[in-house]
Simulated assay, not measured.
Amino acid sequence: MSLISKIALTLIKGVGHVTAKNLLANFGNAAAVFKASKSALMQVPGVGEAIASQILDTDALKEAARQLQFLEKHKIEVLFFKDENYPRRLRDCPDAPILLYYKGNADLNHPRIVSVVGTRRATAYGKMLCRQLAETLKPYDVLVVSGLAYGIDVEAHKESLANDIPTIGVLGHGLDRIYPHLHKTIAQNMLRNGGLLTEFPLNTVPDRENFPKRNRIIAGIADVTVVVEATAKGGALITADIAGSYNRDVFAFPGRSTDEYSQGCNFLIKTNRAGLLNHARDLVYYLGWDDKHGKSSEKQLKLPVGLSLEELSIVQVLRDAPAMVDEIAIKTSLQQSKLAIHLLSLEMQGVLTSLPGNVYRLN
């Protein structure tokens, strides 16, 4: 009865997550909500006469019982926001759903979770970045989250699976269907190494208004959101803004100023809403995973043959830690004009990477 009541509470028209949490806080549990009097219900913030009548007169309990049969038959978990296996990062968000529906084998509280979002019209550049990102993250034991939509979303899922990275698809509809239907096969593959997650009950169709709601779960469940490609307007920017409002890290790959599908990324970087990623390795660096992973200290730096003495002196400065241009100039006694030429040469040879703030680090 308890689980049926929890599902039923989400089926009441007009009861959103905030009101549902108010009801639960007031009555202690979902079953008690449906046993309360109309006057008692109307004492709860957000509950007026119309919603109170809906709770008392609805067939939500019967519908919830029918849905639970389907959920149990298809081994779909129902995660209540107070449950231990509910995503704890998402629980910290003020608008977290009280219920989630989940099918899969990945840990929703994985130690490292990266959300990847972007345009539905991914270019060759965007697909290459998704491949680079997956290949770079593979050694770091991560879980990749996206939305199973066309474009960057599905590329992120595909590349994750190709690199044996568990990946979760957050859906804008119930788990009794897959949208777009074209992604049914990859969704099935994700169930073997990852899973599918939604806040929407069965029989919920993929209406347009569901996807902005879905985006807050993509942002809230992860440590960091990466925007690969995005137009000036769209769901990827919405997700980035939501992640920022949750005080989560946001990063973006830049593109040329004339590229339509990099306008959103460039805007996020320009307005300091996202950190700049020149390469997927930068994400690992920013998050400090190299130190924790323990591989960076073991890796021997391989330098190109024929570096000049000036270039070798720059490498020596950067061996201990990244450094700003001014610091490198002081330690190498190189003039700024000559230093700039050497830094560019080393970057072109893949020896070092430039970071925001005129900082350089060895690759």
Rank of each mutant, 00 (worst) to 15 (best):
S2I: 09
L3R: 10
I7M: 04
L9H: 04
T10L: 04
I12D: 01
I12V: 13
H17N: 15
V18R: 11
L24T: 08
L24V: 09
N26W: 08
F27E: 01
N29C: 14
A32H: 06
A32Q: 07
F34A: 05
L41N: 10
Q43Y: 02
P45Q: 05
A50T: 15
A50E: 13
A52R: 03
T58N: 11
T58V: 03
A60S: 15
A60C: 15
Q67A: 08
L68Q: 13
L68C: 06
E72V: 12
E72K: 15
K73C: 00
H74D: 14
E84T: 15
A96T: 12
L100P: 03
Y102R: 09
Y102F: 15
Y102H: 11
K103D: 01
P111E: 05
V114L: 15
V117M: 08
G118Y: 09
T119V: 09
R120Q: 00
A124M: 13
G126K: 03
M128S: 10
A134C: 08
A134S: 13
D141F: 00
V145N: 00
G147H: 09
G151L: 10
I152F: 12
V154E: 08
E159C: 12
A162H: 02
T167E: 04
I168R: 01
H173E: 01
P180L: 08
L182W: 11
H183K: 03
K184F: 12
A187Y: 12
N189C: 10
G194A: 07
G194C: 08
G195W: 02
L197T: 06
L197W: 06
T198W: 12
T204Q: 11
E209Y: 13
R214S: 02
I218M: 10
A219Q: 04
G220D: 05
I221A: 03
V224H: 11
V226T: 03
A230N: 06
G235K: 06
A236N: 08
A236K: 06
L237D: 09
I238M: 09
A240D: 10
D241V: 05
S245A: 13
Y246W: 10
A252Y: 07
P254T: 02
R256V: 02
S257Q: 07
S262Q: 01
S262I: 01
Q263E: 15
C265P: 06
F267W: 11
F267R: 13
L268P: 02
L268I: 01
K270E: 15
T271R: 11
N272E: 14
N272W: 08
R273H: 15
R273L: 11
A274T: 02
G275W: 09
L277W: 12
A280E: 03
Y285N: 04
G288A: 08
L301D: 04
P304R: 03
G306Y: 08
L312K: 15
L312H: 11
I314K: 00
Q316Y: 10
D320F: 11
A321P: 00
V325S: 10
D326Y: 10
E327N: 09
K331E: 15
L334R: 05
L339G: 07
L346R: 04
L352E: 04
S354P: 09
L355N: 03
L355D: 01
P356G: 06
G357K: 07
N358M: 05
